[in-house]
Design a protein around this nucleic acid. Structure first.
Lengths: 349, 349
DNA sequence: GTTAGCACTCGAAAAGGTTGAGTGCTAACA
DNA sequence: TGTTAGCACTCAACCTTTTCGAGTGCTAAC
């Protein structure tokens, strides 16, 4: 059953008042503060209807109404207006992100700080996970007598390295020739191409360096394997600024939940991924975790060079200013993509 | 003025009872639960003395006594017994740390999780900072047409890398010869050795690749520069399990403080560093932050290969089981040193 | 269909009362 | 002289009761 325009207007007024005040909204307030041309009594009738239809809840008989999850869902899908960030907000955000980042980990933690400062909610940043990697380059270098560094580059642009102890009989030239050889054998392969038959050939060709080869190949495979996506959470304590977390037990329950990264990962995996532009909003129980019952998750996807995927987002009370959060995340997201592609692929701005 | 043995025994009893119960301790309870052979009235007199001397506080007239900061200080310095972890505790801790770590960041976050799980307090892990680096090795590799990877290894065993875009005129052999050349020129140097005169010579020798050289040298310098130590905090919500944080405003104040890494860094810098074995305890206001007024910081130093330094620790209520925390940190610390040296220098166990 | 009016509901906050753990002090005791 | 029993006093914590007011649902009039 379709909602009449009048019901929509009332629903919107209630939700927006509630987002603002965190107090159940009564019919009188709606009549007074919104120019709907209706009396409190009429609004009361409509509210009773909206409640019956499932868009509103009542904490108890003599309180006002609060939006139900269905109400919020309808609001973000159909009623919410776009929020335009002010010029100051935009420039301040941009300038806070306009600095030189040298390491991936730094970017992640800085970004999460920026997100939580901008929105005043706990921020989530997912470290990019590599997808379907091919080996672009593998090289060994003798660092000093007995110690070799393995460097692996995948086509996602990700570089990893590992130290390896080797016998002192191995000198510069041996390392170079093994490096050359393995590079020729392995470049361009993905994990599935490492068949026993192929490995056998490699080992046979350089049988006297079996241990050496084995360590390198193991490491390469580790790099090609789908890396676990990692999750970073910043500004968790921000959630305590919201009246729904005045209760210490509730606060503890939520913060303990958030502290465990696997919980956050699981929720992130429930949000849509892929499409660069899309922002997904999961309200309360849609996150399938009881600890999230009065919070929502807002997530944006980023994507660098078509190879690296990740997500950024926030967790706020269901009663959050969705429009504003969405706009902020969109802006931060686009900046982040730029920073990362500059950093990982050396693109000039 | 020296404390009599009897006063010491009473002080210790009070502190240990308070650590256990978090409730002000009364004279009657001490008399009943501890075999001091004294009546409540006598203990009352001694308590009045201890209060006058500054070792005890009274929340209000008709409550029991609680230890003052001076009381805690005296306790950890002179009264506290060593706590011996049980065999089960030791083996369970060891087995939880006995897995393969592949990346530094993983170790850090896993360790912080282990610390906070073991102690039930928020954990702090400081990422190792490098000291006084020398360049051990620098190498460039052509990853694909137009894209070069710079790999830098310092004598602290730390490896960093960066992508660099180059003109398409630069091929495999050019990269190799520049790599060879720079390696010869720069290996063994520390940041101070990069004098203008020396740089001039380098630029002149390969004038046609000026941009290329400049980028590499900048990156090398960045790697040699003292890296900012970074701090990782895990299990912050654990603090909420303690009755001193029942009050939501107090909880928010503390968690907000802890969320800002620079606050934690500043506190860490107040603790002693250097000596590998030493554990330092800062009680309440000794941390010089009002937000820490009823918490203590317990920190252990670790040190890998004489080159990498860092700290691990916890923040708990002043009323924590110091003895137990100290023992746990000692054990975790020694395991961590092993893990890191294995990882960074490839040492076999 | 809309609105004014009114009785009713129920949580939040304020006010008052009770309880009990703990203290300090005094006087008696070894 | 140090120790102890006894007693009056204090005060936060808890419980109960009362008051208050925002909000509702329903009815009757417009």
């Amino acid at each position: 059953m379709e909602l009449s325009d009048r019901k929509k207007a009332i629903l919107q007024a209630i939700i927006e008042d509630y987002i603002q005040s965190a107090e159940p909204v009564g019919s009188r307030n709606i009549a007074k503060n919104h120019d709907l041309g209706l009396s409190a009594a009429t609004i009361r009738n409509e509210m009773a209807d909206l409640e019956e239809m499932g868009y509103l809840d009542k904490p108890h008989t003599s309180a006002g109404r609060i939006p139900s999850e269905m109400g919020y869902r309808f609001y973000v899908d159909s009623l919410m207006h776009r929020y335009s960030l002010t010029m100051e907000e935009i420039t301040s955000l941009q300038s806070s992100m306009d600095r030189k980042y040298s390491q991936l980990e730094n970017v992640i933690s800085e970004i999460s700080e920026i997100i939580s400062k901008t929105t005043n909610y706990p921020a989530i940043v997912e470290l990019p996970a590599e997808n379907s990697c091919r080996l672009k380059s593998v090289k060994m270098m003798l660092i000093e007598q007995g110690s070799v560094l393995i460097v692996v580059v995948t086509d996602a642009g990700v570089v990893r390295n590992r130290h390896m102890k080797v016998g002192s009989n191995i000198d510069y030239e041996v390392v170079d020739s093994i490096s050359e050889f393995l590079s020729g054998q392995l470049t361009g392969l993905c994990a599935e191409d490492f068949t026993p038959a192929r490995l056998m050939l490699i080992y046979e060709a350089m049988a006297s360096y079996g241990d050496f080869l084995k360590t390198v190949i193991e490491f390469v495979l580790e790099c090609l394997g789908n890396s676990k996506s990692r999750v970073y959470i910043g500004g968790a304590s921000n959630i305590l600024n919201n009246p729904e977390f005045e209760n210490i037990d509730r606060a503890r329950e939520f913060l303990t939940f958030i502290d465990r990264k696997e919980n956050v990962s699981r929720m992130l995996s429930l949000t849509e991924s892929g499409n660069d532009e899309h922002i997904s909003i999961k309200i309360g129980s849609e996150n399938q975790a009881p600890e999230m019952r009065d919070t929502s998750l807002v997530v944006a996807n980023y994507n660098v060079g078509g190879k690296l995927y990740g997500k950024i987002g926030i967790i706020g009370p269901k009663r959050m200013n969705y429009a504003r959060v969405v706009s902020s995340l969109e802006l931060i997201n686009s900046q982040l993509s730029e920073i990362l592609s500059r950093m990982l692929y050396g693109d000039k701005e």
